[in-house]
């Protein structure tokens, strides 16, 4: 069985299928960008994209990614390490404070912008409403997402 993780093909062992996806990504693949903020699917800090849809990895098993494309925050920047325009927009808008919600927030926003190139601010609010941020009040996060939309058009 295989999955594509950040564009790379990866063989999944039978033993892995029952494992929690967040722990698997963090502890076995070393992809620690996804965070555990609650462990029960209530905060969005563990968000990764599976086939371009945001998924709470703390509530998923490895079996759920068989044959799927998984994008974690580590896979969003360019090969040369330069930032994706959405990431750059987060940095420029002041959307990052403690950064703990940032990976999940960026990926949720990426999924939104892939599907909707011209979201209104209200649509952005709805899209990120499952991603908690305690630091920013979301204002500059929404600014960032709004300003990055043009790069998806």
């Amino acid at each position: 069985m295989i999955a594509y993780i950040n564009g790379r093909k990866r063989v999944l062992a039978e033993d892995d299928l029952g494992k929690n996806l967040l722990s698997f990504l963090r502890d076995e693949l070393g992809l620690t960008g996804a965070k555990n903020g609650c462990g029960i699917g209530a905060c969005g800090a563990c968000t990764v994209l599976v086939n371009n849809r945001p998924v709470r990895s703390c509530r998923k098993a490895v079996a759920d990614i068989v044959d799927a494309n998984v994008l974690t925050i580590e896979g969003l920047a360019r090969e040369d390490g330069s930032l994706h325009p959405l990431q750059q927009a987060f940095a420029d808008a002041g959307a990052i404070q403690c950064g703990f919600c940032t990976p999940g927030m960026v990926l949720t926003a990426h999924a939104l912008l892939l599907a909707n190139h011209e979201p209104t601010r209200a649509e952005i609010r709805r899209a990120i409403s499952g991603n908690l941020c305690r630091c920013t009040g979301y204002q500059q996060i929404i600014d960032a997402i709004e300003s990055a939309a043009k790069f998806y058009r």
């Binding site: 960008g33 925050i73 990431q87 987060f90 990052i96």
Partner: peptide, 19 residues
């Protein structure tokens, strides 16, 4: 905005205690 840690945080490379 300018932050010295923006790159690390927005790419998921920042290493918190649990990482």
């Amino acid at each position: 905005a300018w932050r010295n840690d923006a790159y690390a945080k927005v790419t998921g490379r920042a290493q918190y205690a649990g990482d």
